[in-house]
Design a protein around this nucleic acid. Structure first.
Lengths: 212, 212
DNA sequence: TAGATTGTTAATCGATTAACAATC
DNA sequence: TAGATTGTTAATCGATTAACAATC
């Protein structure tokens, strides 16, 4: 990455989309793609794509385009997907269960190492071949298995307690599905995934579409 | 809303967050709140909150603040949550199952009216008291029950076929969980919820945190 | 009335789009 | 070489922040 250039969150959020599409492109046997063609597939302007990529380096060839294989490798490198992050899910409710079975995480380079819950009926079972541990053992397992990311899938009311435990256990980042703000020290990166926002904004747009 | 003022997507996406927090505030028995106090709870600047709200009308009282009850009603009105939208889920995999059991939708004013799948083992069962119908009956049930929103929770490969059926059935909006772009006529509102984006961007930030 | 807080206008900041020189 | 397409700089657009008059 270029020195002292801050990359916008908007750019970071587009990189996974580029990655996903480039993989499809690769499966189609296409070896070189222009920003024009990629943009058409993504409904993103070619200028935007070139700008995003150029903020990390020169990945394309003028007059030619981008080598798909190489670009996938480069974006993977930028996103740190080749690091094989170990992750864990806290909470085996419906959502935790679904996340544990989400097929795309592994193909992106994440390894689900452990699941935690406090329900004695759940502790000890396996979900998608991953063991469910009692939350008491969080610190121990996180250290032992070098887990960097905690996914919070517990009820809202327990989200902060779990956050505190994750921080104490030395986690680096949290992906929070509880619909509330959680507090953690500044060096912990938090991504909030509030499912009610999407549906509610849909309601907003439909109201306007149908009213007018 | 003020005439010919386009409201930014960023503003729309903050309204559900305001709503959620105002409800908590209300439960605490607080009747009046200033943009300052609300901002502190949300980690959003008070100016931002006032600007967002002011784009829809004058909901506050100068020198006083916002009446919580009234503001909740007003935001609900703006978002169209009082319309009692009928919604449906397509696909009873792990994710569809989790969404059918998501507790927050109903409290936001959405009624899950039907679930669809093609698996004969799933057709006829009930998930969270809602019946699973065969996808063949989509058109019929959508019309009959006045369903406005379809939630796509099918595998990637089937997302476009399901989209086409939803459009044909006369749905107004689609909430898409399949990690790919779906195509629909311009009058259909689509919200994409790509779960891999959040985790991948977390990987990006951790890479930088841990490297430097 | 005095203090507090909104709503709005102006200033700043950031992100996207346009244009084009560089070059494969 | 001629055509194509990147990478980068400049122009535009949009969103956030600052400032303050209005007023409860």
């Amino acid at each position: 990455m270029r020195d002292n250039v801050v990359i916008s969150k908007a750019t970071i959020d587009r990189l996974p989309i580029y990655m996903r599409t480039l993989r499809l492109v690769q499966e189609e046997g296409i070896e070189i793609i222009s920003s024009e063609d990629l943009g058409r597939r993504l409904a993103i302007t070619p200028e935007q794509i070139r700008k995003d990529l150029a903020s990390f380096g020169q990945f394309g060839k003028k007059g030619v385009g981008y080598y798909v294989r190489e670009l996938i490798r480069n974006i993977g490198e930028i996103l740190g997907l080749n690091r094989g992050w170990n992750i864990s899910i806290i909470g085996v409710g419906h959502l935790g269960w679904a996340l544990a079975n989400y097929p795309n995480f592994m193909s992106l380079g994440f390894n689900l190492q452990a699941i935690f819950d406090i329900d004695p009926h759940k502790v000890g079972i396996k979900v998608n071949e991953v063991e469910v541990f009692h939350l008491e053992r969080l610190q121990e397992i996180v250290t032992e298995r070098n887990i960097a990311i905690g996914i919070i899938a517990v009820p809202e009311i327990q989200a902060q307690v779990v956050t505190d435990k994750l921080v104490e256990a030395g986690i680096g980042g949290i992906w929070n599905f509880a619909p509330r703000r959680i507090y953690a020290p500044a060096h912990i990166k938090i991504i909030n995934e509030d499912l009610s926002v999407g549906l509610t904004s849909l309601s907003y747009y439909l109201t306007r579409l149908i009213k007018e």
